[in-house]
Design a protein around this nucleic acid. Structure first.
Lengths: 230, 230
DNA sequence: TCTGCTAGTGAGCAGTTGGTCAACAATTAT
DNA sequence: ATAATTGTTGACCAACTGCTCACTAGCAGA
């Protein structure tokens, strides 16, 4: 760790040159962007960065990843807190698809294809390192309205599925949905969420063909994993 | 909810007394504990604390929760990093039950009761605010061997279950287990893990009777959620 | 080419944080 | 009682962090 005490002048020079060659050749011409673009660039970088380092990641580090001064971040976002809020919005609200509800309520589809269509679309927008990490981080950090908003929204979809399952079982649709019925629906959803956790967070091997995986999982969910024989 | 606006002087005094009694009458006599006990106390407090505030929670705050100086923490743990490691060990390794593997391999039980027995025991040791939060936090922070160790261990159990399902389906036990077979097994496990996430992290309403919940979930997993009629 | 507007920055401030250390005091042995 | 041992602490340090501000420089319009 200690620097050598004696170096020849030439060495010193060449070392300095090498060093300066590594930091200078980027004369780092100051790039001027229209505010909207710059804001977007920062927000996108922050999303990636927070996903990786958590919401109290070092802002100076974020700035240097963006090749921008740390002061600039505060020109576009009043405080770290505001920046984090924006990241939430971008990540969650920005990805919510309004047609999910329609797929699930579509009367012309049977329950198998309905669930397969929905979860294929759901996974397409959500099977992403950034999304799953931000989702878990925001849940753990708590105190954020956005994650609660999502919980409620997903809860709404789960309710629809519960009703569709009743319909498929030709049960009475009127009574209130029981806790155990809801747990049944969450079973399917849990499977897909934990698939994302294993894939993007624990990085264990998983089935990579989403089409096959979704089909098989929905089938299993509805029909059971035991071959009913005879 | 609102406090009464008028209180007699006596009341005010007694209130003030009560308040001061709460912070002053602790002349904070210095408590001396045998090292083993103190270490345990700090470790337990740190586990609770990190579970709540994440692994870069403020150590001064932790110290004050323990009614102990911040310097003392460093007498028992060289650095924050070491402390976090110990928290991992305590939380994960300390809870692993060796008999889980035996329950699952037990030849005298049918697959239904096997899975029910196992997951009841599993949830009993793992259905806990602290456990699920530390588990997710450690996964997100990455770079920890312990969480990978657990992933491997759980993976081992999943493998056993995969084999048991083959047996129940009277399939050939010899071929290698396919990715899709494994995904099937993860479906059940995912359900229980995400149950914990909903319960302890998102704090949404869930079925509270573990016995009923485990039974019903295993049944659904094996037999499907659709009533197969005629 | 020059000028005005404003995107962008370096330097620095106040507060915080992990970690250290000499001194203090609770307990035990004498 | 007294002394030796050692668990415990207050005060401190150096590094870091969110955030600010006076100043710099890229770009559009004249």
């Amino acid at each position: 760790m200690a620097a050598p005490e004696q170096i020849s002048t030439e060495n010193q020079n060449s070392l300095r040159d090498a060093a300066s060659k590594k930091q200078e050749p980027k004369p780092k011409r100051r790039m001027r962007l229209p505010p909207y673009e710059r804001e977007n660039m920062i927000l996108e970088g922050a999303t990636r960065f927070f996903a990786k380092h958590g919401f109290n990641g070092n802002l100076r580090e974020l700035a240097s990843e963006l090749n921008v001064s740390q002061a600039l971040i505060f020109k576009y976002f009043d405080s770290r807190e505001r920046l984090v809020e924006k990241v939430y919005e971008r990540t969650f609200l920005g990805r919510w698809r309004l047609d999910w509800e329609q797929i699930l309520s579509n009367e012309t589809l049977d329950i198998y294809t309905k669930l397969k269509k929905f979860y294929l679309s759901y996974l397409e927008t959500v099977d992403d390192y950034i999304w799953i990490r931000i989702a878990l981080l925001s849940g753990l950090t708590g105190n954020n309205l956005t994650s609660q908003y999502i919980v409620r929204n997903v809860g709404g979809l789960m309710n629809i599925i519960a009703l569709e399952i009743r319909r498929a079982n030709s049960q009475d649709l009127d009574g209130p949905i029981t806790t155990l019925e809801m747990e049944g629906v969450w079973m399917l959803h849990s499977t897909f969420i934990y698939y994302l956790i294993r894939k993007h967070i624990y990085k264990t091997p998983v089935e990579m063909d989403l089409g096959i995986y979704v089909n098989k999982t929905v089938d299993r969910f509805l029909s059971g994993t035991l071959h009913k024989e005879a």
